[in-house]
């Protein structure tokens, strides 16, 4: 599955709820304000293990728009919109955590 998260964890618990039930093969893509979760911050530990496994992605345009390109946490993979499409193709059912 592909889980998209579009909220900052400083605003809403969407990422926590997603992480609570994500299975061993699914991946997370941060979009919109969700990319704030891709920055190195006090909540980064929530996704550190998943990122180390190469299962955390962030939408590049949203990262750049928010000025956090140089602040990304370790092992976050950036994708463009075509990469977003590829993730949906590869990972099956898409689940939006809004």
């Amino acid at each position: 599955m592909l889980h998209t998260v579009n909220k900052s964890s400083f605003e809403r618990n969407s990422l926590q709820s997603c992480v609570n039930i994500i299975d061993d093969t699914s991946v997370i893509l941060f979009i919109e304000d969700g990319v704030i979760n891709a920055a190195n911050n006090s909540k980064s530990s929530m996704i550190a293990d998943l990122a180390a496994q190469g299962r955390v992605f962030a939408l590049q345009g949203d990262v750049e728009a928010r000025g956090i390109s140089s602040k990304l946490a370790d092992n976050i993979k950036l994708v463009d919109y075509a990469g977003f499409v590829d993730l949906v193709v590869e990972h099956g059912t898409a689940v939006s955590w809004v």
Binding site: T4, N6, V88, V89, G92, T93, A94, S96, V98
Partner: peptide
């Protein structure tokens, strides 16, 4: 094949 939801 896939349905993707965009919301708030």
């Amino acid at each position: 094949d896939r349905l993707v939801v965009f919301g708030d």
